[in-house]
Design a protein around this nucleic acid. Structure first.
Lengths: 191, 191
DNA sequence: CGTTAACATGAAGGTCGGTTCCGCTTTGCC
DNA sequence: GGCAAAGCGGAACCGACCTTCATGTTAACG
């Protein structure tokens, strides 16, 4: 996108940037998107000003992390493309892995359903994820194991619901995201 | 619960109470739980002080509405108990009606997954809903149309996911709650 | 080692939104 | 009609958070 050549960061700045990113990941995972900048700064062992030096706004921080998250999901889905097994198993395993990767992270659960602030930075990862998932779905449909009208958007829809269930579970609502996925994936199977 | 004998409200006060309740329902439906008291007051044509006279806190207002909502869902589920048709159809129809009743209301979608603030006032409706749903599920399982291990919590889980999907759809995420329900209910069917 | 540009700090500023409070109005009752 | 008591209005208050900025610190380079 931007072609501005950033001069390399000073050593301490690069170190702090990483600390902030890690602290933000932890804070968002624990408290969701409403985690506070001051808490993030404290966890990172820096002042709030330092956080703002690296990320002009809270949303930019969220976007940076969301980008990473979707890249990770895309990695999972792409790795599945090379896996052995029935197409359905391969697909289902990929979905389970994605869900497992997101389940412990409140902010991730909140974002996975298509939060507006992800649109920018996460576009690349989301596109890769969609492409890989599409392929997995195509194979499973061809094989006859998946309902013939299934689409990537169905999976997105299911993951969106998943996010709420996992977050509610974490909040003590007595739900179970694994049970949720079991049922939802069953709904994608051919009858 | 409370056995305090409230003296009857003055006529204007009763009228205002209703106006506030209606305005709050509209505002929450449109903007979700983060609708603002001042907006509610404006819609009701009263001052914020009047809102606070009737509901000591924003949360109390939410609870009052949540109570109404769950009563309505319970009514739907109980009405289904008397319906004709295969047990599965009767169950599925009840779920579709509940979803349809909630889908247009952002706050309702947010609450349906078990938001903490519902716990108090909505307990009665939730209990009735659970009881009726339990009966519907029992019949459908008996009939062999529903998976043998299905429980009320499964339906709660599905509805929790539904809430996020419907809210995301309203926010323009390009999802479709009807498709979601179709898949999720299919996942509850016996194979 | 000295210079300087980059960086860090955290108190202060700004905003937003829930809640309070006191002077004024309306209702209900004699 | 007159009087409490109940109710109303909305400016002001207050706390929570994001963001900025003036001042002090540190890495990089000659």
């Amino acid at each position: 996108m931007s072609t501005i050549a950033h001069r390399p960061l000073r050593a301490d700045a690069r170190r702090n940037r990483e600390k902030v990113l890690a602290a933000a990941a932890a804070a968002f995972a624990e408290s969701g998107l409403e985690a506070q900048i001051e808490d993030i700064a404290r966890r990172a062992g820096v002042g709030v000003g330092t956080v703002y030096r690296h990320f002009p706004t809270k949303e930019a921080l969220v976007e940076a992390l969301a980008g990473e998250h979707f890249e990770r999901l895309a990695d999972i889905a792409e790795a599945a493309l090379e896996q052995h097994g029935t197409p359905w198993e391969v697909f289902a395993t990929a979905v389970w892995r994605c869900a497992g990767a997101a389940a412990g992270d409140v902010a991730w659960c909140e974002l996975i359903g298509g939060h507006p602030s992800t649109t920018q930075a996460a576009a690349g990862g989301q596109a890769r994820l969609a492409a890989a998932m599409s392929a997995l779905i195509g194979r499973a449909r061809q094989d006859g194991a998946m309902r013939a009208d299934a689409t990537v958007d169905d999976v997105r829809t299911i993951m969106c619901g998943f996010g709420h269930v996992a977050a509610a579970q974490r909040a003590g609502a007595g739900l179970d995201w694994e049970r949720y996925l079991e049922i939802a994936l069953d709904g994608l199977r051919a009858r």
